[in-house]
């Protein structure tokens, strides 16, 4: 840690030590009860609620001088919100930052899991808007807490099955619910369901922070994470008929870009680090 790099008048990583301890205790309980939402005394951060304050509080409680931080939003290192959060932590911790997935010890993300498989020792911190997977079926916290306590997830299965009846598919394409360690139904945050399989038995530690809703939850490494489905409608991920217009990948999650007013579109990798590395490799082999 280089003290000169930390903004004057602020503690390392912004939060005071007491707040960090409170978050740390909540994190230890969260990993001990995988998928269970631990209430914590979430604080106002200097960014608005909904813009990643939960993820930022978790990152601030976890980060140390030896960490190397990567921040992505929509899979990209260069989206404005990712740039802003990365600058915040650079300013208030002085730690190294990177865009390379494999170099990072700590990755804060909004809406994606990097394409490159995570490794043991890495920590992935998700920003979570609505932590409760049952919230849009049952708005009351008192009720959903009871459902989790009783492992009563019937309403979730009914909702998914109604989708199938109406659309022929489960009509949930992101924030697709998962069952963690065979016990808790969990919201994986609004990642596309394309990323759900990456959560299962990952060697990395996955931490989830919901600032406004004041909840923290976690998936320890090597933990079963199963996307909910039905025997006759097994879980499946998104596929594209096109490949990335930049690097040509046909395995990554693609974002659609509109090229003209007639709606002509192309697709590009949402993970900018993955796309850049593929391009670099292509240039070497060319």
């Amino acid at each position: 840690m280089n003290p000169q790099t930390i903004r004057e008048g602020y503690n390392f990583a912004y939060l005071d030590e007491q707040t960090k301890r409170m978050i740390r205790r909540a994190l230890l309980k969260a990993v001990a009860i995988p998928g269970y939402q631990v209430p914590f005394g979430g604080r106002e951060m200097p960014m608005p609620y909904g813009w990643g304050t939960g993820g930022m509080q978790v990152t601030a409680a976890v980060i140390g001088e030896n960490d190397c931080l990567k921040v992505i939003d929509q899979g990209a290192d260069d989206t404005t919100n990712a740039v802003s959060i990365r600058a915040f932590f650079r300013d208030l911790t002085g730690v190294r930052t990177t865009e390379k997935t494999e170099e990072a010890t700590l990755i804060q993300t909004r809406h994606r899991i990097p394409e490159k498989p995570l490794q043991a020792g890495q920590v992935l911190v998700y920003q979570v808007p609505i932590p409760e997977p049952l919230r849009f079926i049952e708005p009351s916290e008192v009720e959903t807490r009871k459902m989790h306590a009783l492992e009563d997830y019937g309403v979730m299965h009914i909702k998914l099955y109604e989708d199938i009846a109406q659309f022929g598919h489960i009509a949930t394409a992101y924030a697709y619910p998962v069952l963690v360690n065979g016990r808790y139904v969990m919201d994986p945050s609004p990642i596309p369901k394309f990323d759900n399989p990456k959560m299962d038995n990952s060697p990395a530690l996955q931490l989830f922070g919901a600032g406004r809703e004041k909840r923290i939850y976690a998936i320890p490494p090597y933990t079963d994470v199963k996307s909910l489905d039905f025997e006759d409608h097994p879980f499946e991920v998104q596929r594209w008929e096109q490949c990335c217009a930049i690097c040509g990948s046909d395995e990554s999650f693609l974002d659609e870009v509109i090229m003209d007013d007639q709606g002509a579109h192309e697709f590009i990798c949402s993970d900018t680090d993955y796309c850049r590395e593929r391009m670099a490799n292509l240039e070497v082999t060319a």
Partner: peptide, 16 residues
């Protein structure tokens, strides 16, 4: 905060 966060990119969820 939560209303204004709708201004953040949602390319990935929307694409899904």
């Amino acid at each position: 905060g939560f209303v204004s966060h709708l201004k953040l990119p949602h390319y990935v969820d929307f694409q899904s």
